[in-house]
Simulated scan of single mutants.
Amino acid sequence: MKWLKDDSLDDGEDLADPDEIAADIVTELNAALVRMNQIVVALANPSDRIASGAAAGA
Results as ranks from 00 to 15, higher is better:
residue 1 M to H: 13
residue 1 M to F: 13
residue 2 K to N: 13
residue 2 K to F: 01
residue 3 W to K: 06
residue 3 W to Q: 09
residue 3 W to F: 13
residue 5 K to F: 13
residue 6 D to Y: 09
residue 6 D to I: 04
residue 6 D to K: 06
residue 7 D to F: 08
residue 7 D to Q: 14
residue 8 S to K: 04
residue 9 L to Q: 07
residue 10 D to I: 07
residue 10 D to E: 15
residue 10 D to F: 09
residue 10 D to L: 12
residue 10 D to A: 11
residue 11 D to F: 01
residue 13 E to R: 15
residue 14 D to K: 01
residue 15 L to W: 08
residue 15 L to N: 00
residue 15 L to D: 00
residue 16 A to C: 09
residue 18 P to N: 06
residue 18 P to D: 05
residue 19 D to T: 08
residue 19 D to E: 14
residue 19 D to F: 11
residue 21 I to C: 05
residue 21 I to N: 11
residue 21 I to A: 13
residue 24 D to N: 15
residue 24 D to T: 15
residue 25 I to F: 08
residue 29 L to E: 13
residue 29 L to R: 08
residue 29 L to V: 07
residue 29 L to C: 00
residue 29 L to F: 11
residue 29 L to I: 11
residue 30 N to S: 14
residue 30 N to Y: 03
residue 30 N to L: 06
residue 30 N to A: 11
residue 31 A to D: 12
residue 31 A to Q: 14
residue 31 A to H: 10
residue 32 A to M: 09
residue 32 A to L: 10
residue 32 A to D: 08
residue 32 A to K: 05
residue 33 L to E: 13
residue 34 V to F: 09
residue 35 R to G: 07
residue 36 M to H: 13
residue 37 N to T: 09
residue 37 N to K: 11
residue 38 Q to E: 01
residue 38 Q to P: 00
residue 39 I to H: 00
residue 39 I to F: 00
residue 40 V to P: 00
residue 41 V to C: 08
residue 41 V to L: 15
residue 42 A to C: 05
residue 42 A to Q: 03
residue 42 A to G: 06
residue 42 A to T: 02
residue 46 P to G: 01
residue 46 P to F: 04
residue 47 S to V: 05
residue 47 S to A: 08
residue 47 S to C: 04
residue 48 D to Q: 03
residue 49 R to I: 02
residue 50 I to F: 06
residue 50 I to S: 02
residue 51 A to N: 10
residue 52 S to D: 10
residue 53 G to K: 03
residue 53 G to W: 00
residue 54 A to K: 13
residue 55 A to K: 15
residue 56 A to T: 03
residue 56 A to C: 04
residue 57 G to H: 07
residue 58 A to S: 10
